[in-house]
Structures are given as structure tokens and as C-alpha cells.
């Protein structure tokens, strides 16, 4: 029997390996700090007045908590609670729409044999390369003919009509569902709707959670859509409201930071809370930012 090569190495080797790992960890700690510092600065600044905010060296922990920023954001004339509700509503509808259209499409492309399926799928895939600017202008015209400009409809209806990436993602997961399982269900007289809901869907839970997470983040952070389609302040979503806010109160940094915290921290907290669940799945599927 061959011994495993590592076992031949001495204690000394293991010690140097440990030190090396420690040094590399330190390097990653430094990298992480450049990633995290802007967030920490945002949170810390949201509790300071503009004067102490720009004090150098930076006071990471403000001596006294200043809540005027949050008061201005949540109780001021331009009220974030409306924007928050708008964002929640649109994000919710967008995610529901994505789940319905992308799982159904993904299942059909993977498991139903209909005429023209593969050429349709290929066409869809190849058009993912087309830059959004090409379709942005006609889409705007379509929405304006439909009378959807300055309505939330323009922001969530497209999600019910399928997202190429989401459909592609779900198809990958449905392909992994063993054919024998579906065949035996078909023998028992189950139709595709039944198989889809009762058998296939429970088997692609991992893919579903990635889909929901990615489109939740995407819809929540979507800035370009509202910028193009929404005009009235009371219909703003959070990203647009934050931009409006930072233009309007360009010197009130405390309020701007409080507004930033209000919109980003829920998503970040959700992600950190569920990260063990997600990172693996996102890693295994790759793609989409």
C-alpha cells in the first residue's frame, strides 16, 4: 500500500503551512476591509451630523447618536415609507412573475417535446447577446402606447413575460430531474401540469431559491426602469428616491446616508443571514449579476 504523500511531511512542514495560511488569511482580511469600509462609513455617517462626518481621522463610532437623518428620511415631506412600499410591491410582483414564467418556460424547454422547441430555445439564447439599448427605446414606445408611462405596470409586467436568463437557469435545473421519474408518473396517468407542480418543482428547490434571490435583488435595485418610466414622486421606488434625495438635499449628507442605509441594509442583512444557503448555489450555477 502506498502511503498518502502528505503524511510523509514532517511537523515542520505542517507548521509552515499553517503560517502560510495565516498570512494569506491576513491578506484577505485587508481585501475585505476595502470591500467593507464604504459600508461601515455609510452606517457610521448616517448617525453623525455633517460636521463630524468629515472630521479626520474618521470617528467610526460617533460619540452621540444623531437621528436627524433618519427622521428627515422617514418623517420628512418626501417620505420614504411610500417609496419603501412601492419598492416592496414592485419587487414582490416581479419575483412572482419571474417564478411563474421562468419555471414554466424552463420546464417546457427541458421536459416537454413540442415542435420547434430547440430552435426556439436557441433563438432565445442567442438574443441574450443583444445590448439592452437596442430594445430599450422600442420598449419605451410600446409602454407609452399602452399608456403605462408613469405607472408601476411598466415595471413589473415584463417579469410575467419571461426573463431569458431565468428561463435558462431553470431549464438547467429541470434537465437534471431524472426522466424515469416523469415516465412513471405519466404511466399513472399524470399530465404535464400535474408532473410539473407535484414532482418536478419540489426537485428544483435549490434552483428556485437562486432564481428568487437573484431577481429579488435585481428588482429591488432596479434604477434604470423607474428612471425611464416613472415621473410622479409618489410613485418612486427606493433607488430613484435615493437619487432624487441626493440631488435635492445635496448638502445634507446625514440624511443621504440614512436614506442609503434604509434601502441597502435590508437586502444586505437578508443576504448575510441566508448566505450559507445561497453562496453554494450561486457558485454552482454561476452567472447573473
Amino acid at each position: 500500500m502506498m502511503m498518502k504523500p502528505q503524511l510523509k511531511f514532517s511537523e515542520n512542514y505542517r507548521a509552515t503551512r499553517f503560517v502560510k495560511k495565516l498570512l494569506l488569511t491576513l491578506f484577505m482580511v485587508l481585501v475585505s476591509f476595502t470591500m467593507l469600509l464604504p459600508f461601515l462609513w455609510m452606517i457610521s455617517s448616517s448617525f453623525k451630523d455633517s460636521l463630524s462626518m468629515f472630521k479626520y481621522p474618521i470617528e467610526w463610532f460617533p460619540k452621540e447618536l444623531n437621528l436627524t437623518g433618519y427622521k428627515k428620511v422617514w418623517q420628512g415631506d418626501v417620505n420614504f415609507s411610500i417609496f419603501f412600499l412601492n419598492s416592496v410591491k414592485i419587487t414582490f410582483l416581479a419575483v412572482v412573475g419571474t417564478v411563474i414564467s421562468c419555471t414554466m418556460g424552463g420546464y417546457a424547454y427541458a421536459k416537454i417535446k413540442f415542435i420547434g422547441r430547440d430552435s426556439l430555445f436557441l433563438m432565445k439564447l442567442s438574443t441574450m447577446m443583444i445590448p439592452s439599448q437596442i430594445t430599450m427605446l422600442p420598449t419605451f414606445m410600446i409602454f407609452s402606447w399602452l399608456g403605462w408611462i408613469n405607472h408601476h405596470t411598466a415595471l413589473w409586467v415584463p417579469f410575467f413575460l419571461g426573463q431569458p436568463f431565468g428561463t435558462f437557469l431553470m431549464r438547467q435545473y429541470f434537465l437534471k430531474v431524472p426522466e424515469e421519474l416523469l415516465d412513471s408518473a405519466r404511466m399513472d396517468g399524470a399530465n404535464h401540469f400535474h408532473i410539473f407542480i407535484k414532482i418536478a418543482m419540489p426537485l428544483v428547490k435549490a434552483g428556485l431559491s437562486v432564481l428568487i434571490f437573484l431577481y429579488f435583488v435585481w428588482a429591488w435595485n432596479n434604477y434604470e426602469g423607474p428612471l425611464l418610466y416613472i415621473r410622479s414622486t409618489n410613485l418612486y421606488t427606493l433607488p430613484l428616491a435615493l437619487k432624487f434625495f441626493s440631488d435635492e438635499f445635496s448638502t445634507n449628507y446625514t440624511a443621504i446616508m440614512a436614506a442609503s442605509v434604509s434601502m441597502t441594509v435590508p437586502v444586505l442583512a437578508l443576504f448575510v443571514g441566508l448566505q450559507r444557503f445561497f453562496i453554494e448555489d450561486i457558485t454552482s450555477t454561476g452567472l447573473k449579476g
Binding site: 481585501v31 470591500m35 429591488w220 435595485n221 437619487k243 442609503s260 437586502v267 444586505l268 443576504f271 448575510v272
Partner: peptide
Amino acid sequence: RTILYLPNITSVVA
């Protein structure tokens, strides 16, 4: 991994 991914899920406006 989590920390590196954070900027990507943060709103571009923020």
C-alpha cells in the same frame, strides 16, 4: 466569499 459579494447586491445608487 460573502463579503466580496456584498457590493454586487447593493444598489448602484447607494
